[in-house]
Design a protein around this nucleic acid. Sequence first.
RNA 1: UCCUCCUUAGCUCAGUCGGUUAGAGCACCUGACUGUUAAUCAGGGGGUCCCUGGUUCGAGCCCAGGAGGGGGAGCCA
Length: 478
Amino acid sequence: MQRTKVKDLLQGAEEGKEVLLKGWVRTKRGNKYVNFIAVNDGSTINNLQVVADEKFSEESLKDITTGAAISVVGQLVASQGKGQAYEVQATSIEVVGKADPETYPLQKKAHSLEFLREIAHLRFRTNTFGAVFRVRNTLAFAVHRFFNEKGFVYMHTPIITASDAEGAGEMFRVTTLDPTNPPLTENGQVDYAEDFFGKATNLTVSGQLEGELAAMAFSDIYTFGPTFRAENSNTTRHLAEFWMIEPEMAFYDLKMNADLAEEFIKYIIRYALEHNREDIEFLGQRLAEEDKSKPQQERQEMTLLEKLEFVVSNDFERVTYTEAIDILVNSNHYKKKKFQYDVSWGVDLQSEHERYLVEKHFKKPVIVTDYPKDIKAFYMRLNDDGKTVAAMDILAPGIGEIVGGSQREERLDLLVERMKAVGIHEEDLWWYLDTRRFGGCPHAGFGLGFERMVQFVTGMGNIRDVIPFPRTPQNAEF
RNA sequence: UCCUCCUUAGCUCAGUCGGUUAGAGCACCUGACUGUUAAUCAGGGGGUCCCUGGUUCGAGCCCAGGAGGGGGAGCCA
């Protein structure tokens, strides 16, 4: 007999038929004569109610406890009770895997996210994390779908890299040398010529530079892979291992780049709204519940669903860095000296400034462009004013920077000059510079932090709760 | 890395001014109840008060150090 998933059973397509159902027990309730078992198999946030009437002895039901894996055969019927349209009238129930209620950590009540983080191997079985990871899956699929529909080529850029020139942060060393007794050079340094690759290697901090090489042949490419940063960051929006999406487009300028990023973000949110509405509704209720315990001022104006609907149906705000500085300097907030950090042209925007722009001033996602060249990376294209570069950051309410991108400097002389200024050796990036020597063209791209996107869509406040097993400083459990 | 808060039952948390035997809700176990919706009702078991040291007649509470966790900042996606 073929197993049917809970999601399909709840549609009622097999009403009246005998069905086979497998899953995990969420709760059991009832009395001597009839028991109700809520079963979830991860296919949907909703449980299917299994009814075990008096022909099941108490003894035969005693191992059906929260967390146990069971297999049920029975008839799918319209429910006699309220709260669900269909239920399964059981004819046989097999306990496939017991879960000792004395030691099983999950209970049929709400747990704190912090506690669940400590039992990340079991937290998938909760409503909240079930919803989060179904949404994550849908968003990942939507990423590929979006780019595939647009004719982008999915490119696998290397995980291990010998280049540390990108400057996007501290890197994790990859080595097979004996850490207690490494080979040394004449002047006492570790001799990486002896190492596996014959040189010092690290885990990638970005696939962008390699992505640019591919874009110079396929026109439009994207990467979607793991990224590693050895920064000692302890925040709700940083991970040492995270997933990043990096499209790179030949013959794109900054505006086309921003247009694509906005279309992309709206597309994947809309896709999640269409395919995971119940999950998002549940997560929204969770947030609303959480909000009740907060002071009035900190409460959300919109529900999660309203926020997402708003984002997909309204244009993102677009301002230049210079305009953003003007807005901040002329704000009442600034005049009342409520910013901890001062604002002036040339300094990077602090978190509090970004939050003000996004959450107080515009109240929607904001694309900030044309930053001073000195606070941005060497590969960004110099604007005609000679002091700003064609950079763009997309700032999202509650998350901050969700996208960082730019039009790339395609002019060899200017690029080399910029590399010299920041101390990057030409010979280390000879292959990168070759794309400017041979058939170079204007091009642009951006990086989107996938977990930050999942945070935005699920409303989860801590990035550690939107990746299955988070890697952060001092923590690589599971 | 810096600032700040927290750590008491399986979970969430209370614990007065330093004072006798450390509490509640939920969970769990036992019993009751013929359709429940985190079922309900009654009873029961359950504690290294994070660790180490100190002050004190006496420490869950005060002091010092350490560990773990949360939030904020920086770095960024």
